[in-house]
């Protein structure tokens, strides 16, 4: 059988605005051996202190989360897309970002998974 390959769009046209923490919805990905996160800015972002980084987080159950130690820069301008390959992530993945006041970005986050 050919290897599995799947694209999940995990955040669709959602605006992350500061101050506060934003996360993507929990994605169960235990069947996959590798993943790439893509983030595309759908509208002009506001970065008072420059583009921030999102943390890749892992979880045993989709409820309790810990930083994997991998960061991913968020797009600096409308239409820009950033990406981050991830391996050895266990069963669940999500992104988390803490935005300061006045920061704002509208994103399309997708996760390409392969096994």
């Amino acid at each position: 059988m050919l290897p599995q390959s799947h694209l999940s769009v995990v955040t669709r046209n959602i605006t992350w605005a500061g101050p506060g923490e934003w996360t993507t919805e929990p994605q169960e990905v235990g069947w996959a051996r590798e993943a790439i996160f893509f983030i595309r800015a759908l509208k002009p972002p506001r970065w008072p202190e420059g583009p921030l980084e999102a943390q890749v987080q892992v979880s045993p159950d989709g409820i309790h989360w810990a930083d994997l130690g991998r960061e991913m820069r968020l797009p600096a301008r409308e239409g820009e897309m950033t990406f981050l390959p991830v391996r050895h992530f266990g069963g669940w993945l999500r992104l988390a970002v803490t935005l300061p006041a006045e920061a704002e970005i509208t994103v399309l986050v997708s996760l390409h998974l392969k096994a």
Partner: peptide, 15 residues
């Protein structure tokens, strides 16, 4: 529709 989430392949893992 905007609120709808992606389906997943799951083992139904529990804490």
């Amino acid at each position: 529709y905007a609120q709808m989430q992606a389906p997943m392949l799951s083992t139904l893992p529990n804490w």
